[in-house]
């Protein structure tokens, strides 16, 4: 059962592809805005459903996101990870892992939502982008929970961040654009080649070890050169410097990645807008 609001609607084969990039992105955000109540309800329901029938109930929604962080915290306590640049190892690791989950989530959520909702979306006119936003809302919740734990660890270790950390959301916006855009493009490619989601999962599982989250990467040689092209490394390093040193390292890599992130994000939004109704016909 679906509904559209009271206006003139024109449905043509190439209607969406003939719109300008600006209009496409505007309409996409318009769809998200119109579906905001539904996004809220879907998020709430997913939140409830994920722990329905369990003894601890909604407590699981707080416990599970913390599990990986607590593992790294304990390893840091046992000196598996040393202190880095004056920052306690536990803070350094848990902060980095939290960022990693944000970036990885930005890539994986669109793929998972499009894959799981593809069949259902054909039967409703509910925009897929709104379903993806409900997934992102969950990511925001989990990230808040993780940041809560990071704050506790900061308090416990007295490893205070620099006040520049307040600018972190702004500095990380290019990263969100980059990985969110990549996620949208990959979600479309996964419709064509089902292997994409599997390959992405594998890449992300190995990726954490080449992102500089767990271990400092080489500062010289070929690996150091390659790191300049590793978006995970570039954005995580930039965020760490801002959070603990109070400096935003406007390295050429960060600037290039930021420009690239806007290009990828705009292209991905446009592609998703044009292709969404083609996905629906694919069941």
């Amino acid at each position: 059962m679906t509904s559209q609001t009271n206006h003139l609607r024109t449905i043509t084969p190439s209607g969406r592809s003939q719109e300008s990039v600006k209009n496409s992105i505007w309409h996409l955000f318009e769809e998200i805005w119109k579906s905001r109540k539904h996004i809220r309800i879907v998020f709430k329901e997913n939140f409830r459903a994920s722990s329905a029938g369990t003894g601890f109930g909604a407590l699981w929604n707080y416990i599970l996101p913390l599990v990986p962080l607590t593992i790294y915290w304990f390893l840091a306590r046992f000196r598996v990870f040393p202190s880095f640049e004056g920052v306690d190892g536990a803070v350094f690791i848990t902060y980095g892992v939290t960022l990693w989950f944000v970036f990885a989530g930005c890539i994986q959520i669109p793929i998972q939502v499009v894959q799981s909702r593809q069949k259902d979306s054909m039967k409703t006119a509910f925009p897929l982008i709104a379903a993806i936003m409900a997934g992102f809302a969950n990511l925001v919740f989990e990230t808040s929970v993780r940041l809560g734990l990071v704050s506790v660890i900061v308090l416990a270790t007295q490893s205070w961040p620099h006040w520049g950390v307040l600018f972190l959301p702004l500095a990380m916006l290019p990263a969100i654009f980059f990985f969110g855009g990549l996620g949208l493009l990959l979600s479309l490619m996964n419709v064509i080649y089902k292997d994409v989601s599997r390959v992405t999962t594998i890449v992300l599982q190995y990726g954490i070890f080449i992102s500089g989250v767990l271990f400092p990467l080489a500062q010289g040689g070929l690996l150091s050169f390659l790191n300049q092209f590793n978006p995970f490394y570039v954005f995580i390093e930039a965020s760490r410097y801002l959070a603990f040193q109070g400096e935003l390292m406007f390295t050429p890599s960060y600037i290039i990645m930021s420009i690239l992130s806007v290009v990828i994000f705009v292209k991905a939004l446009r592609m998703f807008y044009v292709m969404e109704y083609r996905i629906r016909g694919l069941v």
């Binding site: 679906t2 559209q4 003139l8 609607r9 024109t10 449905i11 043509t12 084969p13 209607g15 979306s121 054909m122 039967k123 409703t124 006119a125 109704y277 083609r278 629906r280 016909g281």
Partner: peptide, 12 residues
């Protein structure tokens, strides 16, 4: 509006 046509148009 659940799927797109490949030819023609609809006005509503």
């Amino acid at each position: 509006g659940q799927i797109l046509p490949d030819a023609g148009e609809v006005y509503m």
